[in-house]
Design a binder for these strands. Structure first.
Length: 354
DNA sequence: AATCCGGGGTG
DNA sequence: CACCCAGGATT
C-alpha cells in the first residue's frame, strides 16, 4: 500500500541511505575506535587496527583489547618498529594468529610507504587486508564510496533484497545492490551504520524489524522470509584429536617452545608435548616424578576437537637439553594461546597439590 | 570453490 | 550444546 511521501516524517521520506544515516545518528554504537557520527574521519591507523582485530572476532572481545594495543603502539610507525614476538604476545587470546603476523608485515609496508594508501584497491594488496577490510578502511578512514560487506552487511542485504544465496556468495551481490544507496558525503558512516543495523536490529535470530529504518524497503519482511534469510551455510564436521602437553618446571622456570610459523596456533609459544593425532598419547620426554591431570583439557577449535592431557613435573636438577625449549619465569609467562593458558593452570594446580 | 585458521558470546 | 562473529590466505 503506497504511502504519500509528503505525509511522512523526514526520516521516512528520505531515500534509504539517508534514512539509515538518520537512524545511525541516533542509534549508532559508540565504540573506542570510532569517530563521532558526522564528524571528521578517524585515524586510519585506528580504523585499520580495529578492522583487523574484528575479523571473525566479536565487538565485545575487541573492546577489551583495543586501547591497550594502541597505548603500546600509538601509530603505524611504532608498530612497524615492534618485534614480531611482542606483537604476537599482545595478540595472545584473540585467535587467528596469522593476523598478528600480517599486522606487523602490513605496518612495515605502510611505514615504508610513509602512510596508508587511500583506495580500496591499493589497501587490498597489503598483507592481512582482504576485500572487506580494504573497503572498510577506504570508506571509514578515507571517505571512499565503497561498501564493505561483512557478515552483518551480507545478512542485511540478503533480507532487504531477498537474495537467496549461500552466505559466502552474498558479498558481490550485496555490494552491487547497496552501492547506489551510499550517501556520497558520508560513505564511512553509511558503512558503520550498516554494521550496526546488522548487529543490533537485523540480528541473525529474532531481528527487531519493528525498529528497522529499512522495514519499508525490506523484501524479505514483505514476503515473510526474514527468518529464512540468509540461507545458512553447511558446516564441516570437526575432527577429533588427542595429545599431551608437558609442564616441565625447574628453578622457578618452565619450558616453552615456539610452534611452527604456520598452522594451528602458528608462531605462538606453547607447552612442549606430543603431536596431536587420533591415538591416545602416553609419551614423556624423560622419566621422572610426573603427575597426571585426571581430566584432559578439552578445547574446541574451528575444525578440531582436542583433548589435551597434561603431565607436570618439578625438577631439582636440569632436564636433558632440548634445543626447542626456552625457559620462562613461571610468574612472567609470555602471552599464550588460550589452550595453553588453560593447560598451564591445570599443571600448576597439579604441582600445588600435596 | 573449499579448507584452514581461535576463541568467546549467546540463545 | 549450536550457532555466530566488522575475514584472509592458501590450495
Amino acid at each position: 500500500m503506497p504511502v504519500e511521501p509528503a505525509r511522512l516524517p523526514i526520516v521516512l521520506a528520505a531515500d534509504p541511505g539517508r534514512r539509515l544515516l538518520a537512524w545511525y545518528d541516533r542509534q549508532g554504537r559508540a565504540l573506542p575506535w570510532r569517530a563521532p557520527a558526522g564528524g571528521p574521519a578517524p585515524d586510519p591507523y585506528r580504523v585499520w587496527l580495529s578492522e583487523v582485530m574484528l575479523q571473525q572476532t566479536t565487538v565485545a572481545t575487541v573492546r577489551g583489547r583495543f586501547e591497550g594495543f594502541v597505548a603500546r603502539w600509538p601509530d603505524v610507525f611504532a608498530l612497524a618498529r615492534a618485534d614480531e614476538a611482542d606483537v604476537m604476545a599482545a595478540w595472545a587470546g584473540l585467535g587467528y594468529y596469522a593476523r598478528a603476523r600480517s599486522l606487523v608485515a602490513c605496518a612495515r609496508e605502510v611505514a615504508r610507504r610513509g602512510g596508508f594508501p587511500r583506495t580500496a584497491e591499493e589497501l587490498g594488496r597489503l598483507p592481512g587486508i582482504g576485500p572487506y577490510t580494504a573497503a572498510a578502511v577506504a570508506a571509514i578512514a578515507f571517505g571512499q564510496p565503497v561498501v564493505p560487506v561483512d557478515a552483518n552487511v551480507a545478512r542485511v542485504a540478503a533480507r532487504v533484497f531477498a537474495i537467496d544465496e549461500p552466505v559466502h556468495r552474498l558479498a558481490a551481490v550485496a555490494r552491487t545492490k547497496l552501492s547506489p544507496w551510499v550517501p556520497p558525503d558520508r560513505p564511512g558512516d553509511f558503512a558503520q551504520a550498516l554494521m550496526d543495523l546488522g548487529a543490533t536490529v537485523c540480528r541473525p535470530r529474532v531481528p527487531a524489524c519493528a525498529a528497522c529504518p529499512w522495514a519499508a524497503d525490506c523484501r524479505a519482511l514483505a514476503q515473510g522470509q526474514v527468518a529464512q534469510l540468509p540461507r545458512p551455510r553447511s558446516r564441516p564436521s570437526r575432527r577429533q584429536a588427542r595429545g599431551m602437553a608437558w609442564w616441565i618446571e625447574w628453578n622457578g622456570r618452565v619450558a616453552l617452545e615456539r610452534r611452527p610459523p604456520s598452522g594451528l596456533l602458528g608462531g605462538m609459544p606453547g607447552l612442549p608435548g606430543t603431536n596431536w593425532g587420533g591415538r591416545v598419547p602416553s609419551s614423556l620426554p624423560f622419566p621422572g616424578l610426573w603427575r597426571y591431570a585426571a581430566q584432559p583439557v578439552r578445547h574446541r577449535f574451528t575444525h578440531l576437537d582436542l583433548e589435551l592431557s597434561v603431565a607436570a613435573v618439578r625438577l631439582s636438577a636440569p632436564p636433558p637439553f632440548d634445543p626447542g625449549w626456552a625457559w620462562h619465569p613461571i610468574d612472567a609467562l609470555p602471552g599464550l594461546p588460550t589452550l595453553y593458558v588453560r593447560a598451564a593452570a591445570v599443571a600448576r594446580a597439579l604441582l600445588a597439590a600435596p
